[in-house]
């Protein structure tokens, strides 16, 4: 009996046990094989519950466990590093009919994934904000600002930050109805989710894509002509989200 047959039967309780597995008296292994079925499903479900506590709270534990059972069979981890497990969950939730009544659920899962990524991200290099003040404005505009590993933005048509907060903090206000964008940063060791304007999200996204400050500013002003560059840079500095700056040479 090969390992393919073992794993196929372990993932599908409706299949008979693989042949050749025995109890001490030589009889078929019977429910002894269920230990492996159970260990795989329970341990991967726990990994998902640990990674997506707010999704779990929103749908309830029984629903989450049933959903996880379907997900882990369709999308088992691709590596033993379970801190990365669940990248496929937002997409899975988008086409999981039983979750259709909670349309914001995939974006909540994206937010939780982003927080986990930030938790394990590389520590940022120290950045001296004087560099921003000392560079002449026209040179600054042509520069590329580097963001810390793990800095991400999520733009959602749903109030995902306030839903997430209401389900992870004791005294949080009830969520509203407006679309929300979220900036994820990690000053120190604990990731922080900050609600931001759509223009701020567009600005940060442009920086994550390696665009110049000028191009990022244009993207932000397209979203909102009143975009406040100084306040946004101040927010990024306070969140230890900036790590460096490179000036583009003129012939690039």
């Amino acid at each position: 009996m090969g390992q393919a047959a073992f794993i196929t039967a372990a993932l599908d309780a409706s299949q008979p046990n693989p042949k050749g597995l025995v109890a001490p008296d030589g009889s078929p292994a019977g429910k002894r094989f269920d230990v492996y079925r159970n260990n795989i499903a329970v341990s991967l479900t726990e990994a998902l519950e640990t990674g997506f506590p707010v999704v779990c709270k929103l749908v309830g534990e029984a629903f989450f466990k049933a959903m996880a059972g379907v997900f882990l069979r369709a999308h088992p981890p691709s590596s033993p590093v379970l801190a990365r497990y669940g990248d496929a969950l937002p997409g899975f939730l988008e086409s999981f009919p039983p979750a259709a009544s909670l349309p914001y659920l995939p974006d909540i899962a994206r937010l939780e994934l982003a927080m986990r990524r930030a938790y394990h991200a590389a520590d940022p290099a120290p950045f001296d904000p004087q560099i921003l003040a000392e560079l002449p404005p026209e040179r600054l505009m042509r520069a590329v600002l580097y963001l810390a590993d793990g800095v991400q933005v999520i733009a959602s048509p749903y109030p995902i930050h306030s839903i997430w907060r209401a389900n992870s903090e004791a005294d949080a206000p009830p969520p509203g109805r407006e679309a929300e964008c979220v900036l994820i940063t990690r000053p120190g060791f604990d990731p922080v989710a900050t609600p931001v304007f759509a223009a701020t999200a567009a600005f940060v996204r442009a920086l994550t894509e390696g665009k110049t400050l000028e191009m990022a500013l244009t993207a932000a002003q397209n979203a909102d002509p009143e975009f406040d560059l100084t306040a946004t840079l101040g927010l990024l500095l306070s969140q230890q989200a900036l790590t460096g700056l490179t000036e583009r040479s003129d012939h690039e």
Partner: peptide, 8 residues
């Protein structure tokens, strides 16, 4: 097909 998080 993947990593199954148990010692088989």
């Amino acid at each position: 097909t993947g990593y199954f998080n148990d010692l088989l």
